[in-house]
Design a protein around this nucleic acid. Structure first.
Lengths: 232, 232
DNA sequence: CAAAAGACTCGTACAATGTACGATTTAGTG
DNA sequence: CACTAAATCGTACATTGTACGAGTCTTTTG
C-alpha cells in the first residue's frame, strides 16, 4: 500500500506556458488533483443527479484514465463525501457579525445553508448517509456562537441548536422531494388531485403550497420566537 | 406489455393443506405476491442496509427466480418505494382521539413516526428521494386534524404543519447519521475529540449528546409552544 | 551523473448488478 | 380437450466499481 496524499497534497509544477490552449481549462493536462476531481464530480452531480455519477464518466470529465482517480480518492463513497462537503462550504463574511443583530445572523446563516443545498439537490439525498464534514461543523459553530450571543443559556444551547438544525434539514429535504430538478412535481396524484381521503389536507391546500421560501422563513420566525422569547 | 396487477391485485387460491410444512412460511410455495416481496425486502433492508438489497438476494429470500419478481414489481426503485411506504404505515388507535388532548395526540403521532423510521434506518436515507406515499399522507392528515382541533387558524395551519413535519424529518435524519446501526458513532474524530477549531460546540458537548429522545421531545415542546401559545 | 525510490497514470480483467427478452409452465374458461 | 391469460424463470447482456500490476515520470540519494 503506497502512501497516498493525505493532509499535505502534492501538486506537480506545471511547465509554464506550454498548455495546448491557455483558455481551455478542462481536458487532459492540468494535472489531476483531488480538488479537480471533486469539482468535476460536483458538476456531474449537478447535471445528472446521484445516479448519473460514474467513475468512468468522472474520469472522462477530468480527462484521465479511470483508475487514475483512485490514486487521489479512496473509492466512490469518498467522492460522494468530498463532493458533499465541498458544496456545503460557507462562503461569506468571515466573521460572525458580532453581538448586534444575532437574529439576522442566524436567519442569514440558515438560509444560506438551505440555499446551498437546494442549489445542489443531490446533496440532500447524500446527507442522511454521512454528515458532519468540517464545513458542516463550521456552520454549526457559527450558529452556536450567534445563539450564545443572543443570550441563550448554556443549558438550552444544545436543544436550541438541534431544533434549528433539524428544522433546516427537514425543510430542505421536504422541499426537495416535492420540487424535482426538472421543475415538475413529484407528489403523487392522489395528493394533488383531491380524492376525499385526506380532507383536511386537501382543504388547506398543503400540497399545492409553492411559496417554499416564504413558508421556510415564517416557520423559522416562529421557531426563533419559541427559542428566544422576544423582549418581555 | 401484459397487464400487471395494479390496484386490484390477483391472489391465487392456495390448494389448502398441501404446503410442504404448515409452520414454514418462507421458501418457495406460498405463491409470490407483491406483499410477500415487500415484506422480504424490508427484512433484507433491516438486515443488510440499503446496499444489501439486490434483486437476486430478494428472489432467494422469497424463493423464486429473479425475473419472477418483475411480474409483481416494476423495478428496483419500485421495491424501494413500496418498502418505504410499508414501513411508514400507521398502526395505532384508528380514530384521532377527538378534541380533548390535542397536544398529546400530536406528540404521540410524531414520536411514533420517528420511532418507526428509526426502527428501519434505511428508510431515512430513502426519504429524500421519494416522499408522500399514502401512509405519509395519512399521517399528515391526522396531524392536520389534531392541530385544527387545537384551534390553529386555517391560515396558519400549513405553516404549523410544515414546521412540525420538518422538525421530525430533520431530527430523525440527524440522529440516524450520528448513531449507526452497529451502535458505533459516525461523527468524525475532529468533532468528538476536541481540536479547538470549534470551541463553542466543543464546550457545549453538542456532539457528545446522547439523550436523543429527550432532546427530541424537549425541542418538540418548544416548537408547540411557539405554534400554539399556551393559555395566555 | 547513475540508479534507486517514490509518485502518479492507466489498460486489462473480473465479479456483481439490474433488467430485456422470450420460452415455458400453470390456471382458468369454453 | 383446446385456447387464452397469468405467472414463472433461465439466459444473456450492458453497466458498474475496483483489484492488480505494468508502465511512466519526478525526486532523491549515492
Amino acid at each position: 500500500m503506497a502512501a497516498k496524499p493525505g493532509g499535505a497534497r502534492s501538486k506537480r509544477i506545471q511547465k509554464a506556458g506550454l498548455q495546448p490552449r491557455p483558455g481551455e481549462e478542462r481536458r487532459g493536462d492540468p494535472t489531476l488533483s483531488r480538488e479537480r476531481i471533486v469539482a468535476s464530480a460536483v458538476e456531474l452531480l449537478d447535471a445528472h443527479g446521484v445516479n448519473g455519477l460514474t467513475m468512468r464518466g468522472l474520469a472522462d470529465a477530468v480527462g484521465s484514465g479511470v483508475m487514475s482517480l483512485y490514486w487521489h480518492v479512496d473509492n466512490k463513497e469518498d467522492v460522494f463525501d468530498l463532493a458533499l462537503d465541498s458544496v456545503l462550504e460557507y462562503r461569506g463574511t468571515s466573521e460572525p457579525g458580532e453581538a448586534q443583530d444575532w437574529r439576522g445572523a442566524v436567519v442569514q446563516g440558515l438560509e444560506d445553508w438551505r440555499a446551498n443545498m437546494l442549489r445542489h439537490p443531490w446533496s440532500i439525498s447524500l446527507l442522511p448517509r454521512r454528515a458532519l464534514g468540517p464545513n458542516i461543523l463550521y456552520r454549526l459553530e457559527r450558529l452556536s456562537q450567534a445563539l450564545s450571543s443572543a443570550g441563550v443559556a448554556a443549558a438550552d444551547l444544545n436543544i436550541a441548536l438541534w431544533t434549528l438544525w433539524n428544522y433546516v434539514m427537514g425543510a430542505t429535504i421536504t422541499r426537495a422531494s416535492f420540487v424535482r430538478s426538472g421543475g415538475e412535481r413529484t407528489a403523487e396524484q392522489p395528493a394533488t388531485q383531491p380524492t376525499g381521503r385526506y380532507p383536511t389536507i386537501e382543504r388547506s391546500g398543503l400540497l399545492r403550497e409553492n411559496d417554499w421560501d416564504g413558508t421556510f422563513s415564517r416557520g423559522l420566525d416562529l421557531l426563533l420566537n419559541g427559542l428566544v422569547p422576544p423582549r418581555p
